[in-house]
Amino acid sequence: MSRKEDVDRLYEILNELENAVGGKRKLENCDGRMDWPRRGVYFFFDPREERKSTDELRVTRVGTHAVSRGSETTLWDRLKTHRGTLSGKYAGGGNHRGSVFRKEVGRAIIAREGGEQKYPDWGEGSSAEPEVRKRELDMEKEVSKHIRNLPFLWIKINDKPGAGSKRAFVERNSIALLSNFGKEPIDPREQAWLGNHSPKRKIRESGLWNVDYVDESYKRGFLEEMRGIVRSL
């Protein structure tokens, strides 16, 4: 079976998942009062990106959380960090130092707009002084606007935190399968895709807002395991 056939199988499973959870959502319409599973894997799509062979939206980010032993981070905790803040001093913005997704989207916007001198500290360190965060607020708002408009799905996998978890297995192999890095492209990216402006080659050439696992081979068996999980929801 070819990689193209396996990519098609993954999208078939995602279609089943969409039916199981009642459709894609956008973070602009989400809050913590919704019925989120404690743990899971999420798949972000881009509303301006379609697959080459169908009119399905293309996956542009795969992620999970709590893969370190003892971590208590929930699925909503991770999604909320990507969404950004709704109130307070940094309302409308967020903290990209707590979200690799936000950091890389911001880097691409900055590169596209030639804003490197305006945001010299973007992505530097795990925290920042209040004056730095204030200077970065406009860009944080741009990042929030972009991410909150991306449709996404999530698959409930309530296993224990750890590198050997099913969530980590599904995340890693989904990324490796979907990535075009160093491979014959499947579902080539539109020229206008924001990720094409990323300073990181792995993002530009994989077509995903991911860096880890994009240069790895995938284990085909994850597809049947993932299908079984979806059908048990």
Rank of each mutant, 00 (worst) to 15 (best):
L177D: 00
W193E: 11
D159W: 03
P188T: 02
K141S: 09
I229T: 06
R204L: 11
G207M: 04
S174W: 02
V143M: 08
V170E: 02
S217E: 15
K156R: 14
R227N: 14
A163H: 13
L194V: 03
L137T: 02
E184D: 14
V170N: 01
D187P: 04
R220K: 15
S217G: 10
P151S: 08
F152N: 00
N149P: 03
E224L: 14
S174Y: 01
E140V: 05
L194I: 05
K202P: 03
L208W: 03
K145R: 15
A168T: 05
K219D: 15
W209V: 02
A176H: 04
F222L: 12
S217T: 06
E184V: 05
I203F: 09
I203N: 02
N180Y: 07
G162F: 14
A168K: 11
R167L: 12
E205N: 11
R220I: 12
I157D: 02
A176D: 05
A192I: 09
D215M: 06
N210T: 01
V211G: 07
K141W: 09
S174I: 01
I147L: 15
D212E: 14
I229V: 09
G195W: 04
R189Q: 11
N173I: 07
S206T: 02
K202Y: 08
L150T: 02
E142K: 15
K202F: 08
I229M: 09
A192L: 10
L150F: 08
E171C: 05
R204C: 06
L178G: 03
G162V: 03
L153P: 01
I147S: 06
P188D: 05
K219F: 15
N149D: 13
F169Q: 05
N180A: 08
K160V: 09
W154D: 00
N196C: 13
R167A: 12
K183P: 01
W209C: 06
I155V: 14
F181N: 02
R231H: 12
N180C: 11
N180S: 12
F181S: 00
P199I: 05
E205S: 07
F222P: 00
P151V: 03
D212Q: 11
Q191K: 13
E190Q: 12
V143I: 15
S144E: 07
P185I: 01
E216R: 08
A163E: 14
M226W: 06
E224K: 11
S174R: 00
G182I: 01
R227A: 15
K160M: 15
L223A: 09
D187T: 03
Y218K: 03
G182Q: 05
K160P: 08
G164P: 03
E140G: 07
S217Y: 11
S198K: 04
G195Q: 04
E225G: 10
H197R: 04
F152E: 02
E190A: 14
K166I: 08
A163V: 11
L137R: 07
K156Y: 07
E184T: 04
P185F: 06
A163Q: 13
R201M: 09
A168N: 13
G195C: 11
E225K: 07
K202H: 10
L208Q: 04
D138H: 09
K145Y: 13
Y213D: 13
D159E: 08
